[in-house]
C-alpha cells in the first residue's frame, strides 16, 4: 500500500532529526523535559500536516516564482494558530516553549517537506507524509528528552492528570542526578552520541551486506 509507505518512512528510514539532521534548534532547545518535547513534537506535527495538505491543495494555483514566500505565509499562519491555541488552553506549555514556538516557522523540516513532497504529490499522500514526518520528529524529541531528563534530573515529567501531578520519580538517580545533561552541553553530547550510534548501526549493516556478497 503506497500510503502506508509514506507514513512509515518518516518514522525510521528518513527520520528528519537523526538521518536528515533537519530542525536541530528545537530538538536541542526544548528537550530538557519530556512534557516540553511532547508539546513541541505535536505542535510541529499539527503545522506540518496542515501545511502539507494546504500546499498540496494549492500546488497548481501558486505560481512557481513566488512559491517559497507563499509556503512561508501558509506555514506561519498555521504556526500563529497553534501559538494562540497553546496560549489559550495550555499556558504553562506556551511559556515553557518560549521563543522556540514561533520558530517552528523556520524549522527546515516543514519548508523542506513542502518543497520536496507536498508540491508534487496528491493531497492524501501529502497528509500521510506530514503525519509520518511529524511523528518521526516527535519520537526523536521524545527519545532525547527521555535520556536527558532521566539522567539529568531523575524524573519523567508528563502532563498532570486529575490527582496525579504528572511527574514520575526514578529512585536512585533522583538523589544524584548528572545535572549537566539537562544543561546546554548535555544536549549536544546526547545528540552526538545518538548520531554516532546511528552511524555505527549503518556501518555494521553495510559490512554485513558486503560479507554476504563475498
Amino acid at each position: 500500500m503506497a500510503n502506508k509507505k509514506e507514513l512509515t518512512k518518516g518514522l525510521f528510514k528518513e527520520n528528519p532529526t537523526f538521518v536528515l539532521l533537519l530542525g536541530l534548534c528545537p530538538t536541542l532547545g526544548v528537550t530538557t523535559m519530556v512534557s516540553n518535547a511532547i508539546g513541541m513534537g505535536f505542535s510541529v506535527l499539527f503545522v506540518l500536516t496542515l501545511s502539507n495538505i494546504m500546499i498540496s491543495l494549492l500546488r497548481n494555483v501558486i505560481p512557481d516564482d513566488v512559491r517559497i514566500p507563499s509556503y512561508i505565509v501558509i506555514i506561519s499562519s498555521f504556526v500563529t494558530i497553534i501559538e494562540m491555541l497553546l496560549h489559550a488552553f495550555v499556558p504553562s506549555l506556551y511559556t515553557a516553549l518560549g521563543v522556540y514556538l514561533p520558530l517552528i516557522v523556520v524549522n527546515c523540516i516543514i519548508l523542506g517537506r513542502a518543497e520536496a513532497f507536498a508540491n508534487k504529490n496528491t493531497v492524501g499522500d501529502s497528509a500521510y507524509d506530514g503525519i509520518g514526518m511529524g511523528l518521526g520528529f516527535t519520537i526523536a524529541l521524545l527519545l532525547i528528552a527521555l535520556i536527558r531528563e532521566v539522567l539529568g534530573s531523575g524524573t519523567i515529567t508528563l502532563f498532570p492528570l486529575g490527582e496525579w501531578s504528572g511527574v514520575i520519580h526514578i529512585p536512585l538517580i533522583e538523589a544524584n542526578p548528572i545535572r549537566v545533561i539537562t544543561l546546554a552541553p548535555g544536549a549536544l553530547l546526547v545528540m552526538g552520541c545518538i548520531i554516532a550510534f546511528n552511524n555505527y548501526r549503518d556501518n555494521k549493516k553495510a559490512s554485513n551486506a558486503k560479507r554476504e556478497n563475498k
Binding site: L21, G192, N199
Partner: peptide, 13 residues
C-alpha cells in the same frame, strides 16, 4: 562511527 557530524557535536559540547 564518530567521524564527521557526531564528533562535531561532541566538540560543540
Amino acid at each position: 562511527s564518530f567521524k564527521g557530524v557526531p564528533i562535531a557535536f561532541i566538540s560543540a559540547c
